[in-house]
Amino acid sequence: MIELLRVSKVFNQGRHNEYAAVREVSAVIATGRVTVIKGPSGSGKTTLLSLAGCMARPTSGRIWLREMRLPAGLGDGREVELSSLPERFLTGIRRGMFGVIFQQFNLIKGISALENVLLPAYPLGGDMAGLRRRGAGLLASLGMERQAASRVEWLSGGEAQRVAIARALINDPQVIMADEPTAHLDTALSREFMETVGRFRDEGRSVVIASHDPIVCGSPYVDSLIEMRDGDLTGQSAPTPPAP
């Protein structure tokens, strides 16, 4: 699980435009569950997501990863406290353990869908032929085998998101992070996305979603809610016991 203890994030510290995006938030994100960080825009949910996903360091407070498969040579192999780690290790954790799906999908234009899927795997130095097979397999499992060679700017919103999902999965992460994943999808596609989330949970992955979309928050696949407003934690529903 990911445990956050009295975590704050202050931007532009010491300058006139200083503001705290997250204030003294303590929360737990359980392993193998779907957790939604809920709140209106500007509530700090994206910031909290990026803190939990090792993409940013908290200004104060501590974050632990517990009972997860950690990259070799980190902590005792079961537990690590993030804020004390050098940037190099954070990157290692981020790309080895987390897969991220962005609101704007953040695909790189001008190259094919498959190339985009493979990008997070390149710095890990995997064998290219094996990687391409794996990437093609992931796209196929999302019904995208025909579009694998298409340039991403030719894809529809739903297709682009599936590419982003495949990209998040390429390094076989334990945790999937999604920031406002349904913001650019219609209702049908949004429901379809939540079903994909359900599949992730069935595969044993943890899923963390930052969203204020009722389709997401009210989805039956969601195990736990963390509610945010103006940078403060306003409520956390206890995770339900794992499905039998």
Partner: peptide, 14 residues
């Protein structure tokens, strides 16, 4: 693009 690469796990060195 640099930002995207960073966000999906590329290091500064990469």
């Amino acid at each position: 693009e640099t930002g995207i690469l960073k966000a999906i796990g590329w290091e500064t060195a990469d």
